[in-house]
Design a protein around this nucleic acid. Structure first.
Lengths: 152, 152
DNA sequence: GTAATTGCAAATGGTTTGCATGTAA
DNA sequence: TTACATGCAAACCATTTGCAATTAC
């Protein structure tokens, strides 16, 4: 376990304890894969990482465990329109909130954060008396390298 | 057919003719329901409207026809995270582009448009050399009336 | 006439669930 | 000891597809 992931483990263990759940080898293994892995992984990708450590882990366990992580606020579910749910560290587990640019050519996912957009969203909602809980903001198109290789 | 929907019919018929497809009673009936109905309808809702006119129409036909409308640029598919795809008139069939606020309590869908947000998105993408094709921007929370009834 | 379209039912595919077995506390 | 968790297979559910019958042109 890397140093910077220790707080995430601690939060997970605290949640598990507070709910009367159990700390299992599978959950710890999936937590390892999720906390240290690349962002925006699908269940399938996560399962592959997890099975490098323990080939016996079933895919239903990964589904259930990521739902658990989402429930306790460690993970966020993302839908980028390709039919598979992706998981990433939640905003609070992370440095800060971010949104995404998704390359339709190579599949690359780029994170962005723009304070002005965030502020304007709040303004739009306020004007309508709407109380914001969360938002999705995804920009689809072609990333710089795909635009470049297309031009060739 | 109402006056303001005539251009939409014309575009549909033009597309159908240009592709060597056929103008069927089912397609015209589904077009009626879609062009004149409320926005953001699911296939199931659309099917119900369509069957008021012609109870024989099958649901696969509605799926196929809405895909056709999307293909020819008349319809836009929307995913508000509840597992059902919704269809609305595309930006070009409509007055202008818009995004959505979705009430998680009552399900109300409110449209919004903010030029500053649009401009900032382009700025974010430009800085990364990313070419935008489209975007999703959804704000989830509680609408004014649900916030009010909660306060009671 | 013939190629596109329809309606039905079956297939698909990601995700969820029931259940018998295993295991943490 | 006794709930909770796991792994498997089956179920789910929105959507898609194969196919025989129908229809537009």
């Amino acid at each position: 376990m890397m140093q910077r992931q220790a707080p995430l483990y601690a939060r997970l263990e605290a949640y598990i304890a507070s709910k009367g759940l159990r700390s299992t080898t599978q959950r710890r293994c999936i937590a390892d894969a999720f906390f240290s892995g690349p962002r925006h992984l699908t269940i399938e990708e996560l399962l592959a990482r997890v099975r490098e450590q323990d080939p016996q882990i079933g895919y239903a366990t990964v589904y259930r465990t990521l739902k658990l992580f989402a429930e306790c606020g460690l993970a966020a579910e993302r839908d980028f329109g390709d039919g598979r749910t992706r998981y990433e560290l939640s905003d609070e587990s992370n440095e800060h909130h971010h949104d995404h640019l998704i390359c339709l050519v190579c599949g690359k996912i780029i994170e962005f954060h723009n304070e002005k957009i965030e502020a304007l969203q709040i303004k739009v909602a306020d004007k309508l008396g709407f109380r914001i809980e969360r938002h999705n903001h995804e920009i689809y198109g072609s990333c710089a390298s795909c635009v470049a290789s297309e031009a060739r």
